[in-house]
Design a binder for these strands. Structure first.
Lengths: 169, 169
DNA sequence: CTTGACGTTGAACTTATGTTCAACGTTAGC
DNA sequence: GCTAACGTTGAACATAAGTTCAACGTCAAG
């Protein structure tokens, strides 16, 4: 299978496939005499796994260390370890999200609770002091890095926030 | 207040303070005749706000557009809008996290459920086909960009999902 | 033989949030 | 006047996961 076809089959871009190979994530690739890459059918399956793992929150680096050369021989312990760690990460993250959400909701209601006899500036001050009085919210369980990417992150034609190139005086 | 003292007061690094200034986020800074930056006491408060907003999931860019020059005059509508959007983003993220977690837990139990009479390779195959048979899990609620940073700057990120250009099957 | 689709490469670019560094200037204390 | 601590700058580096580009090679059809 040539790269274009594999891309079509998996829904990935060819640049992604080449990138995965470059970082040592996708090793099942050979070369034809003309230099073209050629993939075994198994590659499709492996890429499916990679995509899934990524959706589940694994980094490519993690996936690389977990993926065995032979899909029949996994490092059972390392895998279970990684899975349970990832689950713990997610739980920690869930806790943080819940807290952020609570915090934001509190802020919203607080802003809306402006007494009728208070002007905006005073209300701003009231809300501000309320907000800043909140404790540091020590969510000490700082898990490792969790990164969840969704499946199709193509950013062509998306109106992207342009980062402005820092003002130079 | 000189930069070192502000850093001490806020717990931020001086490089961070200079960076915030560079990207136009922290504007309350003057210069002494010797070139040294000097900050009003208000800067402490602003930085507290920035830090909080960041913890709540706002990017520096978002914070920059929301933060008024004068803390007494906020753009009420823009603020409420941003807050409610951010809450929605968090909820979408929570849904995705819950799903990922479920998925991982299922995988763990599935791996552990190896029949005694099955060898590892066969079990690997069994689990693998199970995993790959799972549907694409279409979490269609596509929020805008959500980026949550925790206090120590590790991040969870969800990137924007755009239907890719693609390739008809 | 030409054209278009497909393939190859390495390097540079992207995003967001900073840090680090070298080279240099200022200030306070002794 | 020396030294340490602090300040300044611009540029480069770091991360993760790719994309984009230019310049070039290959192949199948007409």
């Amino acid at each position: 299978m040539k790269i274009g076809e594999l891309a079509r089959q998996t829904g990935l871009t060819t640049s992604k496939l080449r990138f995965y190979e470059r970082i040592g994530l996708l090793k099942t690739v050979d070369r034809r005499s003309n230099g073209y890459r050629t993939y075994p059918p198994q590659a499709e399956l492996i890429l499916g796994l990679i995509t899934m793992a990524q959706r589940a929150g694994f980094t490519l680096d993690e996936i690389r260390t977990l993926l065995p050369a032979d899909l029949k021989h996994w490092d059972h312990d390392a895998l279970m370890n990684a899975l349970t760690r990832k689950i713990a990460d997610i739980e920690a993250l869930q806790a943080r999200l819940a807290q952020s959400k609570t915090h934001l909701l509190r802020l919203v209601t607080d802003i809306q609770a402006r007494p009728d006899d208070m002007d905006c500036a005073a209300n701003a001050h009231r809300v501000l002091t309320n907000v800043l009085m909140e404790p540091p919210e020590n969510l000490d369980v700082t898990p490792d890095d969790v990164r969840l990417l969704d499946s199709t992150d193509r950013r062509l034609s998306v109106s992207r926030r342009r980062s402005k190139k820092a003002v130079s005086p």
